[in-house]
């Protein structure tokens, strides 16, 4: 269906998208809010990374800056939500819109930056370890590190507080924890990962473009939902790996579709359809298992929180 080289390329790209998916997982599952900041913060990360690389800066430092800039976008969204009481979806849209101008500024008022002549983390590793699989191994290592850190983090006291915030804010406040602070923290971590994904993406394709963020949140959601559906949610570690695999699968599916002759212009439509179908199947699957042994919400499911049926959260 696709050439071996295209296969490897898709998996390499999938590793980058896996980090995006893990970021989206944090907001969508752990905090229980779909966060639209992502479409902006991924470009912020890419812009910062591309700019630093093109100026001859250290590519690893560039990635750290991508993380921090992405996290700042998340903090703004969370503050709009918690301090100004703007609905989470709207807050995300506002930041996404505002980020467009900021991103252009970061990119020096150009709509794209090419890194063909600049150092990137991929080129650097290739120089030290030349070979076909270098970029792939690098991607796997980065994703493995992110998953490991996330796993241990979600098992700490702070991680518990974060997870409980998506579950039951009343309980969190009654436990002496500021749910507002948790939202700020959670969205900053989530968008930090998204920014990191953007930074890596720019270095991987040696290219950053002001319009590259469109639909990224949908791709992230698709990866989370499809990954969980296929690879399972039994334990937290399994769930994190499933989300990452979902992103890789998504890239492979796109590669196959393109090779089969799908016009590249239809990509976004197909992404939207995938998420729609996945969400619909998710709802049906939940109802199906409602009485079963693996019932997600049990018979004591939260009234008025049907939404949570499609948005099961992290945990054992």
């Amino acid at each position: 269906m696709i050439t071996f080289a295209a296969f490897i390329g898709s998996v390499e790209l999938g590793m980058v998208y896996a980090i995006l998916a893990l970021g989206v997982f944090l907001s969508f599952r752990t905090l229980n809010t779909p966060d639209l900041t992502v479409d902006g913060s991924i470009v912020t990360g890419a812009a910062a990374s591309a700019m630093i690389c093109s100026l001859g800066g250290n590519p690893v430092l560039a990635l750290a800056v991508s993380f921090v800039f992405g996290a700042m976008a998340g903090i703004i969204t969370a503050l709009l939500n918690t301090k100004l009481k703007i609905q989470p979806l709207l807050a995300g849209i506002l930041v996404m819109l505002g980020a467009y101008s900021i991103n252009l500024r970061i990119m020096g008022n150009k709509s794209n930056i090419a890194l063909t002549k600049s150092d990137t983390i991929y080129k650097m590793t290739k120089e030290i370890f030349p070979g076909t699989y270098t970029s792939l191994v690098l991607g796997i290592l980065i994703v493995a590190a992110v998953i490991t850190l996330l796993f241990f983090f979600l098992k700490t006291r702070l991680g518990f507080a974060l997870r409980a915030t998506g579950d039951n804010e009343d309980m969190v406040r009654a436990s002496g924890i500021s749910s507002d602070q948790m939202k700020v923290f959670g969205l900053s971590l989530s968008n930090g990962l998204v920014g990191l994904a953007g930074g890596l993406l720019a270095q991987y394709q040696s290219y950053a473009d002001i319009g590259m963020g469109v639909g990224m949140v949908v791709i992230g959601l698709a990866s989370v939902i499809v990954g969980e559906a296929i690879f399972g949610t039994r334990s937290l570690i399994r769930r994190l790996i499933a989300v990452a695999l979902g992103a890789i699968l998504y890239r492979l599916a796109i590669a196959v579709a393109l090779a089969a002759g799908m016009p590249a212009n239809d990509l976004k439509l197909v992404s939207a359809l995938i998420v729609t179908v996945a969400l619909a199947l998710g709802v049906m699957g939940e109802n199906f298992s409602f009485t079963g042994k693996n019932s997600k919400n049990g018979k004591t499911g939260k009234p008025g929180k049907i939404r949570s049926r499609i948005q099961q959260k992290v945990g054992e």
């Binding site: 997870r163 409980a164 579950d167 309980m171 009654a174 004591t300 959260k313 945990g315």
Partner: peptide, 20 residues
């Protein structure tokens, strides 16, 4: 339903409470 984080385990809930 208001007193516990429904998608966390019993011991995780207790731990949040004891860490008040």
């Amino acid at each position: 339903l208001k007193g516990t984080a429904f998608d966390m385990t019993i011991e995780e809930n207790l731990s949040i409470a004891i860490c008040k």
